[in-house]
Structures are given as structure tokens and as C-alpha cells.
Design a protein around this nucleic acid. Sequence first.
DNA 1: CAGGTTGTTGACCGTTCGGTACAGAATCGG
DNA 2: CCGATTCTGTACCGAACGGTCAACAACCTG
Lengths: 195, 195
Amino acid sequence: MAGGRPREFDVDEALDQAVRVFWQRGYEGAALSDLTEAMGINRPSLYAAFGNKESLFRKALDHYTDQKAVHVRDALDEPTARAAAERMLRGAVEVSTQPGCPAGCLSLQGGLAMGEDAVATRERLADWRRSGEAGLRDRFERAKADGDLPADVDAADLAKFVVLVAQGISVQAADGVDRERLHRMVDIALTSWPA
Amino acid sequence: MAGGRPREFDVDEALDQAVRVFWQRGYEGAALSDLTEAMGINRPSLYAAFGNKESLFRKALDHYTDQKAVHVRDALDEPTARAAAERMLRGAVEVSTQPGCPAGCLSLQGGLAMGEDAVATRERLADWRRSGEAGLRDRFERAKADGDLPADVDAADLAKFVVLVAQGISVQAADGVDRERLHRMVDIALTSWPA
DNA sequence: CAGGTTGTTGACCGTTCGGTACAGAATCGG
DNA sequence: CCGATTCTGTACCGAACGGTCAACAACCTG
């Protein structure tokens, strides 16, 4: 069938830059001119390849999930519930303080509160945050069945607490706290781990 | 000297509404038309009374500090360090889930990441968050001197951890978690309290 | 090389943004 | 009652926003 002029930019590299801009400026704070400049492409190229701004953010968030927030998935493979929690939290520290990336995590920097026209994006981010918690809760349920966690602990509460701490870490990182101090926060959080 | 036409609106009530709008929409997501509509005044009245948008946000944040975030100050008056921490966290839960107010707290809903032109406001919010931590740290230092806290605990780290949990609570509240569950999060966080 | 297809480019669209100018209305001191 | 002063309402400003049109360039198939 068809040929057509080949794309002059790499979609993944462009998404990398889009992630960076959204990460640093937030969804609403990231202007299209910021995005196109960072991605090194013109506006129509952006729209042809990624749709509109909301759709670009969706793709950037997926990209971020696969590339930066891998600890959210990988933590579930740890042999114990405690190791899973620790990997989750250490991963949050590392991602939130990665050199060359904006401080904090995209899921919070993207935006908690937004204008009326961005409600869908706000809800998408909230869902993203909740999804990490769901995986952890299932993992902790399994740990209870395995006897890895005491039967009287509430897996849902524990998962929520771990995610809550991870989010606190991201906020602190956004406010400029360095890696070592954040790892000490993880130490403190984990001292409450159920025996 | 002077007389002048009297103001037809109450400044504090207008600030109440401004706080609500910024709280729900964030600094950038709150359009001036949203603000004037909620405050029940016209644009020139807003500018005459509060200056520009950034200045209005500053005043709204002060208003919020005095009226909603009182637990941040009051916690320091508690007799023990642990009671201070608990009051801080319980207060965060209450404020973040207050009926009739947006979920979460203004210091995070206001915005973590912003566009280039709002850097000053972003930094102001970050300073606000840090200031609460500073008060708590001083309180914990005093507790160490009093023997209320063990000598080997790091007051700065402990204060940072408490604030970190409070911020996590606000994020969770923004994502729709209810009061009881958040109070259980406080329970978990406090099990790591130094003996 | 011709025709179809797809990407790039630059100029441009309507809308909304934060912020103001100006005229009228309400109060003061004299 | 009068001038000075301050607030209110409408209408408006330039700039920036997200999004698109139309001409051109680069590739495919035949």
C-alpha cells in the first residue's frame, strides 16, 4: 500500500522529553510551546503523533510507568512482604531524587488539583496512584496466606500506609530533601513493620 | 482627609472563598473568573483589595494558616513530643477531610509543580511546608533536652518524618480516602515512635 | 517518473488568560 | 452642598493558551 515521508524524530525520545516537562511543570503548567521545544518538534508533528495535550500526557504517563516507576511493579516480586514494601519505598526515594530528572514523582508533580477542564487528567493521575496501592495490597494478602505476614494485620491498611509514605517521600523530594535523608525516612517508616 | 465609598463585601469572607477555590483548583487551575465568581465581587474590586493573583494567593495562604491549619501551631503546645506528633497528624486528617471543604490540604493542592511564571508561588508553598517542619523539630529538640525523647533520636529526622506522613495523608485524602482510614494510618505511623 | 501518502513547516485560528481604564455611585470632611 | 476620595460595574487590553490549515518535502508503490 503506502509509503509516506518517514518521521524525523524518535517517538520514545520525544516522550522522554515530554515526561520531563510534565514532571517539572505539572500538567497545567506545561505549555505546548514548552513541550514542543523540549521534544524538538513542531506543533502539528506533536498532534499527528500523540493527539492532543491530554492524550500526550496519557502516553507520557504510560512511558513513565514503564521506564521510571518500575519499582512499583518490581516490588511485588520480592520474596517477602517487608522486602516488597522496602523496595517500593527505596525505589520512590531513588526516582524522586534522580539526577537529571525533576525532583519528586510525576504522579504528584503532574498535579493534584486542576482547573475544571482538566478533571479527566486529574482523575487519571489519582487512578494511577491507586493502582500501585492495589498491587501492593494483593501482595500483602498473599503474604498473609503464606504466613509471611501475621493474620491480624489489615493488608489494605498496610498497603495504603506504604503508598502514603512513598507519596510523602515524593513531596519531600520535590521540596529539595536529598537522598540520604529520605532513605532515613524509609528506615523510620519500616520500624513500624508488623512483627 | 478622606472618606470614600465603603466596601460592599467582607474581606475575610471573600478570602474564605478564595481559599476554597485555590484549594480545589490549585494556583494555576484557579482562573480569575473562578475567583471573582466565588468571592462575589468584580475583578477591579479584587485587584483593589488584594493586589494581583499572586498577592491574593499569598493572603489566602495566610488566611488558611490562621483558620484551617491551626493544628500546625497548636501541636507544639502539647505536653509531650508524641502528643505533638499525634495532634499534628490527627489535625492533618481532620483538615484534609473536612466536609464542605475540598479534600486534601491547600499547601499541596495549591501546587507542587508550576509553570515558569509561577515559580515564586511554588517556592512560597514549599517554604510554608518547611516552616511547619521547623517548628516541630525545635519542639522535639526541647523534648530531648527534657528527657521526653531519647537522646539518640534525631529530632530533625523525626520532625521530617511526621511532616512526611502528614503530607501523605493529604494526598490520600485528595484521592478520596475517608477519615477513619486516615486515622488508622496515623495509628500505624505512630507505632514507630521511639521508646 | 507519476500518484498516493505521510511528515514537516510556518502562519494562523478562536478563546481564555491575567490585568486595567474609565465612568458612575457612594461616602467622607468642610 | 461641594470637592475629594474610594469603591463598583462594564468594557476592554495585549499576551498566551490549545489547536489547526495549507503548502511543501520526503518517502513508498507501480
